[in-house]
Design a protein around this nucleic acid. Structure first.
Lengths: 172, 172
DNA sequence: CGCATTCACTTAACATGTTAAGTATCTTCG
DNA sequence: CGAAGATACTTAACATGTTAAGTGAATGCG
């Protein structure tokens, strides 16, 4: 048992377990993941009843507010990656919930808007969705909710510029 | 007839939709999603260099701390759904990063543990991972980080029992 | 004991996340 | 003008999220 290499460069596989890192369940990504899941768990059943996924609902909501947008801008608004958005728009268009037409000025751009049917679907989902949000707010506390969201925004801003320097210096 | 200029900005963006709901970008799920993405964006490149996804890393971390667990318990610890875990364990086992053997007492249960190779891989990733976490902590502030995590935990607890009553009354 | 239930996973099927490659269009600049 | 580069998507490929169904092994109970 006293067999222990004095050289710190030597790995000593057995020693690894003595460095457990932070308690796993308390890591920030985990906390965020669990919190978000707790929230989304409330919404999913209602959305599902209306045949919508969380992301599809995000897109419809974004479209309802913006009226008409190009795909790239919609991706930023709904916080979806291009490929995901591309697939979802294809499906939503097939279900006639959105409409698409290429911009005249720039044939590359595709302008997206919510359809009449999409508006109606939103109207049928919104009440229950709002009710759930209200209940969450009530349980957690309206003031704390605002405070939490401010902290989340601040965290986001704190990390916004992190990792840009590397790309600039290590481009290939 | 004067041919209308192809400028799309002239249609006046007709009356904004009626029921705007909360500002979309300020919804709680969105705030949580964005914050988590801002954090994970920092870790992914490093993990990727070592051939690991976020979830695979979660599993290895959980295993390193627990030594040996059954799959269901691991799912709870790593916060993964059964099917996802099942697939990932299959792959990690094929890469010899974990080991599996069915429990003697109960043939249904499968006991999972990290392998020697898995331990070494962890040791090679941990330093950079810890450095990134330290930088995030430094940028956001250690105290605020703790505060944020407490709020997240509280939010989670607030919603823990929500939605259980329905199932009890509306079982099919 | 025997059989319906429950349990611990695993498979299946479909949707999204993530990165890389492809395609068509537009822009730039010689 | 015209080829190189930039843009705005779209496809492809692989991994995970999510729900439902399947499989084999315990358990409960008459």
């Amino acid at each position: 048992m006293t067999k222990r290499p004095a050289d710190p460069a030597d790995d000593g596989a057995a020693a690894v377990r003595q460095v457990p890192m932070r308690d796993f369940s308390r890591s920030l990504p985990m906390s965020l993941l669990r919190a978000r899941e707790a929230v989304m768990r409330q919404f999913r059943p209602s959305l599902r009843e209306h045949g919508l996924t969380e992301q599809q609902w995000r897109i419809l909501r974004a479209l309802a507010a913006i009226d008409t947008v190009e795909v790239t801008e919609l991706a930023r608004t709904a916080f979806l990656l291009g490929p995901s958005l591309s697939r979802i728009l294809r499906d939503l268009e097939a279900r006639n919930l959105i409409e698409r037409k290429t911009a005249k000025a720039d044939q590359r751009r595709s302008m997206v808007s919510i359809s009449e049917k999409g508006v109606k679907l939103m109207a049928s989902v919104a009440p229950s969705s709002e009710a759930i949000y209200a209940e969450i707010t009530r349980r957690f506390g309206a003031r704390k909710l605002v405070e939490l969201q401010e902290m989340l925004g601040e965290l986001e801003r704190s990390l916004a510029e992190l990792g840009k320097a590397e790309e600039a210096s290590a481009e290939e």
